[in-house]
Amino acid sequence: MSESIVEVKKLTFSRGDRKIYENMSFTVPKGKITAIMGPSGIGKTTMLRLIGGQLKPDSGDILFEGLSIPSMSRSELYQTRTKMSMLFQSGALFTDMSVFDNVAFPLREHTRLSEALIRLIVLMKLQAVGLRGAKDLMPAELSGGMARRAALARAIALDPELIMYDEPFAGQDPISMGVLVRLIKSLNEVLGLSSLIVTHDVHEVMSIADHVVIIAKQGVIGEGTPEEMLKHDSPLVQQFLQGLADGPVPFHFKANPYEQDLLNGVQS
């Protein structure tokens, strides 16, 4: 396998009493598009926060370019974060700034470039996502898809090594979904960066991903190229990829037997 940008090793993480990951390992290869997939509610977003150092694992290690994220000091962590960026589900644009200022924000915070140069870079980034004409709008005036593209422009403002996408396709109409898919693909090729997509939209992501990690039941249940995944012999993987209603992940939430519940209601 080629060189990896993120390596997760024997990770265990729990929130309160609930164990979310147990002894989990996978890698994110450099320069490729990696997709992390899995049913909702198993903590895929948590994984991104762990990689970003916002959460600390109970045990195990996360390496970013060979450096351990959990054991970094605060200032080292902030240093490292300038090399990664994250696209949040909601876009997380700053609502009190225009689109232009939003994209300029990381540049103004972390560089000492002149305003003229910043303007140039911002326009280039906005052009890349097709929103140069919307630079003076406020985030509230954008549609959901446009907000996500503006946030993407902000995420690539500092030319990061790694972009993490948190559910980029959730709640998008087919057109803007198509736009986003194409954007992610082309950004990855043009800028030569690594992408990590967390999603449960199987079809969209299978078309662009180079590497797929499927997680369920607190661990990785399958890892490999999309083709390998489609031929995977685990029924769980197959159920997820084909979107079957029932299978190893049951349709019904854990409950008492149906008849018993109904009859109890009658008796009381």
């Binding site: 970003g52 916002q54 960026s85 994250m86 949040f88 589900q89 909601s90 997380a92 609502t95 990381p106």
Partner: peptide, 14 residues
């Protein structure tokens, strides 16, 4: 709620 605080943190801004 709109993840602006998280996103600041991820942009290496406290």
């Amino acid at each position: 709620a709109t993840e602006q605080l998280s996103s600041l943190e991820m942009m290496a801004v406290d």
